[in-house]
Computed example of a mutant assay.
Amino acid sequence: MVIEENVRTKNQGMTGAIINPGAIGDCILTLPLARFLKERLSLARLDMIANSDYVSFYPKRTCVDVVRSINSIAMHRLFVGPDEFELDQHDQLIRDFSHYDYIVSLLGEPGGSFESNLIFTVYCSRSAEVTTIRMHPAEGQNRHVAVSYIDQYCEANGLQCEGLSAGLNTELITPTADDKQAGRFILQSLGVNPDKPVIGIHPGSGGKYKCWHIDNYLALAEKVRKNGSVPVFIIGPAEKEHLNKAALNRINDEHTVAENYKLLEIMQILSTVQAFVGNDSGIAHLAAGSGLPAITVFGPTDPALYKPAGPHSHAIAVEPVDFDEPNPAAVEDVEHSLNELLAKTGPC
């Protein structure tokens, strides 16, 4: 699968690729690196090789020009030992990487078999720069992971990089006018007036341990409604798995629910709302990266490493116990932070 929009041909400039095997948030956290590569290397085209379910909407809305499905390339072949690795003369694997001048991989380890075999494969067709960086932070790391990705690239290639943390405060994803219109249509189909202030609430995450107690979100939603805004809960398969039936029934009985929408549609919904509140999750990274005023509630994970990047992103660290039981005081803190953020950013 290849998704692209208005890109130059490979004969019109240098091309690069980022290989990212991660989930929604992992891919969004590589967008500062993608922008750095395009600008620093003057790339005419940059591809993202990843799970297409997570990144298919990137062309036209991010600095990524082309999306390729990571499942369309036989990456597993690159994990064998170098002595066991074999390629045919016209191997598809060679063709898969034959048009890149620069490749940055978050798959494999620096100096590992995957990197060695990837370099060998690339050099079967052309001379290119291949850099492998670690996806997950090293023990004791205190740098934000998005900054770490750029730092690792610079360290591996002898480049000077300073002031990169400022790039975390800029918009990474720009919804189109069509996206905003589609988001309005979805809200209308849910019975919500898109001209009213809407607060998106996402109570889930890929890991249940990262989910603030659902009663806290329900209490926050009541406060949002009393303040004159419309809370809209975003619910998908992860939420249905992590939340008990009674909690799901209460959400559906008391509030508007955007349920089982595709990632592009969630992005379109978020492009129309006034603000977002949620856990450390891919949806929080999507909201903040799109420039939306976003509150992310952290407990077990470290916001210094994983705070969503964006111009109006705010992280709140609460006690881990609040993820196991309701805490009215913590709800008050989140509401206060939300109101402060909205006062600074104004209506969307």
Rank of each mutant, 00 (worst) to 15 (best):
S56L: 07
G158Q: 10
C154M: 03
I251P: 05
V7Y: 01
Q12W: 02
P326I: 04
H202N: 15
M1V: 11
G204S: 14
D53K: 10
L107E: 12
A44V: 01
I19K: 03
I186S: 06
I173R: 01
L33D: 05
D151R: 06
I235F: 07
P194G: 12
A44D: 04
N244M: 11
K180P: 02
D26T: 06
M75C: 12
K210V: 00
A74D: 14
N193C: 13
P311Q: 02
G81S: 12
R184P: 05
P197N: 03
D215Q: 15
E325A: 14
F298S: 11
A146C: 11
Y123I: 02
H76A: 11
A138L: 13
M1Y: 08
L190K: 08
E222W: 05
P82Q: 12
V230I: 15
L106R: 03
L190C: 13
Y54T: 10
M75T: 10
I186V: 14
L172I: 01
D302Q: 11
I70G: 10
G291E: 02
V66L: 07
M135A: 14
Y58P: 04
A182W: 13
K180A: 13
G81H: 15
V273E: 00
A138Y: 04
R95C: 12
D91P: 12
E319D: 15
D333H: 01
S205V: 04
T256D: 07
I269P: 04
N20Q: 10
N244L: 13
N327H: 08
D47Y: 06
L220P: 08
E265M: 11
D47G: 02
L168R: 11
P300Y: 08
S148L: 13
H202V: 09
I103F: 04
P175Q: 08
I133T: 14
P59E: 10
L46D: 00
S165A: 09
R250L: 12
D195Y: 13
L37V: 04
G207S: 04
S52Y: 12
V224R: 02
H336D: 06
S113Q: 06
K10V: 15
N327G: 06
P326V: 03
T132K: 07
